[in-house]
């Protein structure tokens, strides 16, 4: 892929992945600016999760390019992509149930990532302060010693977001972050996302239109692996193609 350097945080070009001939993502072009909070919506099976899988290296693309700050990601392994500055939250909360909130954040702290580094890792003041700072941000600072298994579903979602934030990624990708949350928790999460999108790019996958309206700078509608429409919330909502897909479903 020969495209020149750009100012985009993320530049996805002609990205395709096919599973046994079925194109889950089909010739996708997609750009993300710094400080942009971009939401991808679309019906079930549209390929939203697969796009995140491709960006973070979980699934290998069939063709196309993914450039993150002008660095080609398709050739890197998962941990190299993370170390380059890409964080990803999974659709079902993925935290370490048998560790405490503190330990969950500590394990995610971006130091001592090698075998010997982790053996020699010291929990110094810098680490503790950072963990406390993040815990406050995700509203779990009063539960640091709680075993993660005991958190509510919403708190687990926050914890996983915190585990990404502690690595200070330039690109943060969240797959359905408010699934299973109460109305109040949704509001708090919207606030959190608005806060953390400063200084980085955030890519969110979401179904809940009300929530999307609260956070999105830009919306992309994905349908059968292709982009149906893209732009600000109002434009997208008025787009006849979008209305058809959503009503036809």
């Amino acid at each position: 892929m020969m495209s020149a350097n750009t100012d985009f945080t993320l530049a996805v070009e002609e990205l395709t992945v096919s599973f046994d001939g079925f194109k889950a993502v089909d010739n996708l072009n997609f750009y993300l600016d710094k400080n942009e909070l971009h939401v991808v919506i679309g019906p079930n099976g549209a390929g939203k999760t697969t796009v995140l899988d491709l960006i973070c290296g979980k699934t290998k693309s069939t063709s196309g390019s993914i450039k993150f700050m002008n660095k080609e990601l398709t050739k890197l392994s998962e941990h190299e992509i993370v170390r380059a500055g890409v964080g990803r939250k999974f659709q079902t909360p993925s935290i370490y149930e048998n560790l405490t909130v503190f330990e969950n954040l500590e394990v995610s702290y971006p130091r001592g990532r090698g075998v010997f580094g982790s053996l020699m890792f010291k929990r110094d003041a810098e680490v503790e302060n950072k963990i406390l700072e993040i815990a406050k941000e995700i509203m779990l600072d009063h539960m640091l010693e709680t075993e993660a298994a005991l958190l509510s579903h919403g708190q687990k979602q926050w914890l996983e977001i915190g585990m990404l934030l502690i690595q200070d990624p330039q690109l943060l990708m969240l797959d359905e972050p408010v699934a299973g949350m109460s109305v109040k928790e949704r509001e708090q999460t919207a606030e959190l996302l608005n806060k953390i999108s400063a200084g980085r790019s955030v890519l969110v996958i979401e179904h809940d239109m009300e929530f999307v309206a609260q956070i999105a700078h830009k919306v992309t509608v994905l349908h059968q692996g292709k982009i149906l429409a893209s732009g600000d919330m109002d434009t997208v909502q008025k787009d006849p193609k979008v209305i058809e897909v959503y009503l036809g479903h």
Partner: peptide, 28 residues
């Protein structure tokens, strides 16, 4: 008792989460 030990538990529980937190799981 080191961070390695906590990573072992973490890997047992959610290997993918460890991998996507920047660790080369195989090395551990």
């Amino acid at each position: 008792t080191s961070k390695f030990g906590r990573l072992l538990l973490a890997m047992r529980d959610k290997e993918d989460r460890v991998r996507f937190s920047g660790y080369d799981v195989a090395n551990f």
